[in-house]
């Protein structure tokens, strides 16, 4: 992994069309500004991990889901 030190107001450029700017540092939180083409998806990693975990669970427990749906619909 490439590690770079940046100050507030400084940025890094990835390829020729993505720029990541350090906007603010407050305590353990960093605010970043990301300038990228609309075709490049930018997401918080933990959201992608949550979605992956939820998909895995939905697939692994699909029969439980199916039964729960059927039972609830009867009520």
């Amino acid at each position: 992994m490439l590690v770079l030190a940046r100050k507030v107001g400084q940025s890094i450029v990835i390829s020729d069309n993505i720029e990541v700017l350090v906007i603010e540092v407050r305590g353990d939180q960093v605010r970043l500004g990301i300038d990228a083409p609309k075709s490049i998806p930018v997401h918080r990693k933990e959201l992608l991990e949550q979605i992956k975990a939820e998909n895995m669970k939905a697939a692994a427990e699909a029969d439980t889901v199916s039964n729960a749906v059927a039972e609830n619909a009867q009520q």
Binding site: E54, N55, K57, A58, E61, T64, V65, N67, A68, V69, N72
Partner: peptide, 12 residues
């Protein structure tokens, strides 16, 4: 939307 369960199937 993908449907799942939580709480051991109690919540959809």
């Amino acid at each position: 939307t993908i449907i799942s369960v939580s709480d051991g199937g109690k919540e959809i």
